[in-house]
Simulated scan of single mutants.
Amino acid sequence: MQLLNHGIPYEITSNVVDVSKRFFELPFSEREKYMSADMGSPVRYGTSYNQTNDDVFCWRDFLKLVCHPLPDALPHWPSSPLDFRKLAVSYAKEVKFLFLMLVDAILESLGLMNKKNKTEENDEDEDEDKNKEEDEDEEILKEFEDGSQLMVLNCYPPCPQPDLTLGMPPHSDYGFLTLLLQDEVKGLQIQHKENWVTVKPIPGSFVVNVGDHLEIFSNGTFKSVLHRVLVNQMNYRISVASLHCLPFKSIVQPCPKLVSETNPRHYMDTNFASFIEYLKSRDSTKENFLHSRKLTS
C-alpha cells in the first residue's frame, strides 16, 4: 500500500532523497571507503546482494546504514556530504515512530492488542485478566521499540540496455515492515496475481511492504510482498528503504495466539543468523528465504 498523510514533514523526506543523491555523486574514491564484505557492518556500500557469489550484479549502487542503536552506529556513517548524518538521523527517527504506529494497528487487526475501554465496568477477576493481557501487549510493543532498523539508500543509474538487466531482481524483504520512499522516477514493481504492476510514485508518500517476518509472525495472515526494480535509459532513480524487524538476537516465530488446530503452525523458527547464512550461500537458482522457512504439510 501507499501511505499518505503520515505526519512526517515533506522537508524531511525531500532532504533525505537529496542528500542520498549527493552521496552517490561523490567520487568513487570517497564511496569505496564504505565497501565491506561483512554483512553485519554498521555501514556498507556495494552493488549486489552477494558480491562474492552473484554471477550478475544488480544495476544499482546502495548504502546500508544500521540505525539501532543509533549512538553506536552513527560514528560509522559517512561524514560526507557534510549534512549527511544530520539529515539521515532526522529521517530515521521519524520513520521509526511511523513504523511503531503501523505495528500498533497491525497487532490490533490480528486481535493481539486489548484497547482499554474506560466505560466498561468489570469485576475484579476480569480486571486482573485484562491487566495481565495489557502487560503482555506492552511487552510485545517494547520488543518492536527495541527492534532493529536498517536504512538502505539506493541509486539506479541510467542503463544503456534496460531490457537486459534489473535494478533489483524479484525478492521479498527480510523483516517485519519496509517503509520505502521513492523519488518521482518509476521503477518499483509489485507482483499481483502473477502480474508485475508498476507502483506510481506519489511525492512524499511511503510504499509499505509486508516482510517475511510479518508473514511468519502472523502465521500467514499477512503475506510478504514480492517486488523488483526496473531501470531506464534516461534518469537516475533514488529510493530510501527503511527495513524494520525485531532485535537481531530475537527468535521470530508464529505468534502462539495465532496457532490453533484449525490454523496450525506454517513456519519454522528463524533468526538473523539464519538469514545471514542464507545470504552467504544465495544464488539466482535458490528459493527465497521465506520459502526456506515454510513447513511442509
Rank of each mutant, 00 (worst) to 15 (best):
M1C: 06
M1I: 05
M1H: 11
Q2A: 04
L4T: 11
Y10M: 09
S14K: 04
V17L: 15
L26A: 06
P27L: 11
S29W: 12
S29R: 14
R31E: 08
Y34Q: 00
V43Q: 05
R60C: 10
L63G: 02
L65V: 07
D72E: 15
L74F: 08
L74S: 07
P78S: 12
S80C: 14
S80V: 15
L82A: 15
L82K: 15
R85H: 09
K96E: 10
F99W: 06
A105P: 02
L112M: 11
L112P: 01
K116S: 14
T119M: 05
T119S: 12
T119L: 07
N122D: 12
E124G: 03
D129T: 13
N131C: 14
G147E: 10
S148F: 13
L150Y: 03
L150V: 10
M151G: 02
C155N: 10
P158R: 07
P162L: 07
L164E: 13
T165G: 08
L166K: 04
H171I: 00
Y174R: 03
V185D: 13
G187C: 08
G187Y: 04
E194S: 08
V207W: 00
V207F: 00
F217Y: 05
N219T: 06
G220A: 07
G220L: 04
L226G: 00
H227C: 04
V231S: 02
Y236T: 12
C245R: 06
C245N: 11
F248N: 14
K249E: 15
I251R: 04
C255F: 10
L258W: 05
N263V: 12
P264K: 11
Y267K: 02
Y267E: 01
S274D: 12
S274T: 08
E277C: 09
Y278I: 00
L279P: 01
S284Y: 01
T285A: 05
T285H: 05
E287A: 05
E287C: 02
N288L: 01
